[in-house]
């Protein structure tokens, strides 16, 4: 049975048959197509990762050769560097505030636009615009001015400038991120449009109201998209740099309250020339992002619903 199932020419094809020659040529062609990517993956990704892991166990200032110090960078980071912990807490606070705020805005606006017949394309583009402009230095400078003493927010609410108040300054950074909710909104909107209308009709026949339909149809059907957005935005949020840099005028102040992780990494590596220490910081960041992503994937089993699961 098993022997007859295998076509005779595939069983022991002679090496020089025209078929395998084409196959080999195609394999060769594949590597030609891949060559830029392979070169980049080795020289600009794998090698640098290995080198930065090595450097994280050394003292290195770019000029004299790296000096092996074992785990000292890591122990110093975890036990003797209050600014490091400050930057960790700042970054975590920022992630926990900015990401849910951004995704909530994205979801609410997507739901509002979903059933719209007129003006949907216009709103979609208009709400999306900040996502393209928001990462720029120009907008970060606007943010600094608007939230500074005498800026719009100060004048409107009489709170004084947020930029100079610890805690509030970080909120200004988070608001700049939340302002760019257009990108996840577009993805939510596309996800909402893929939910079959029959599900809502069936729910309505069963007597489900708007709220019930949202909870029992929209939320589960949208959960894969929500999960995708959550992972993507969380990973990005951990690497925030430009807005914190611009809003604090490059200093991470006031009182280090906007000194996010990447800013402190930049400070240690490129301002203070402690490349070994900065490499150790980069590897901890990599590990933390890896762990957070893994945790998100693990918890997703209990709340992300894949409609096609039954088919598999």
């Amino acid at each position: 049975m098993t022997t007859t199932a295998i076509p005779p020419e595939a069983k022991r094809a002679p090496a020089a048959s025209p078929r395998s020659r084409t196959a080999r040529r195609r394999e060769g062609a594949a590597w030609v197509f891949l060559s830029p990517w392979v070169l980049g993956a080795i020289v600009l990704t794998l090698l640098p990762m290995a080198v930065s892991l090595y450097l994280s166990f050394t003292d290195y200032d770019l000029f004299s050769p790296p000096e092996w110090v074992g785990l000292r960078n890591y122990t110093q980071m975890f036990t003797e560097d209050p600014r490091y912990w400050r930057s960790v807490v700042t970054t975590l606070t920022y992630v926990v505030v900015a990401v849910p705020l951004q995704l909530a805005l994205a979801l609410v606006v997507a739901l509002a636009l979903k059933g719209m017949k007129r003006g949907k394309a216009f709103y979609r583009s208009a709400f999306y615009a900040p996502s393209l402009l928001g990462a720029s230095m120009s907008v970060a400078l606007v943010w600094r001015a608007v939230f500074n003493d005498g800026g719009t927010v100060d004048n409107l609410f009489g709170t004084g400038g947020w930029v100079n108040k610890p805690g509030w300054a970080l909120l200004a950074v988070a608001l700049l991120t939340a302002w760019q909710f257009g990108a996840p909104m577009v993805i939510f909107l596309a996800g909402l449009q893929q939910i079959p209308a029959e599900l809502y009709e069936a729910a309505a026949v069963d007597g489900a109201g708007t709220w019930r339909q949202f909870l029992s149809v929209t939320v589960p059907m949208l959960s894969p998209v929500l999960f995708f957005n959550l992972v993507l935005q969380t990973i990005q949020a951990f690497q925030v740099f430009t807005p914190a840099f611009a809003i604090s005028a490059g200093k991470g102040g006031p009182a280090d309250s906007t000194l996010v992780y990447t800013m402190y990494l930049y400070d240690r590596g490129f301002v203070a020339s402690h490349m070994g220490y900065a490499s150790a910081m980069a590897w901890v960041l990599l590990a933390v992002i890896g762990v957070v992503t893994a945790v998100l994937f693990r918890t997703s089993r209990s709340w992300v619903f894949y409609a096609s699961e039954g088919d598999r």
Binding site: E27, A41, Q239
Partner: peptide, 30 residues
């Protein structure tokens, strides 16, 4: 196209999407 290691290389490529830029930044700079 078909080539050896296609599966693992594709998985590696996907994984690098999530790789923080800062992990490779310093050695690239060096």
């Amino acid at each position: 196209l078909r080539f050896r290691l296609r599966g693992p290389l594709f998985a590696f490529m996907i994984a690098t999407i999530m790789l923080p830029h800062h992990a490779v930044l310093i050695p690239q700079y060096i």
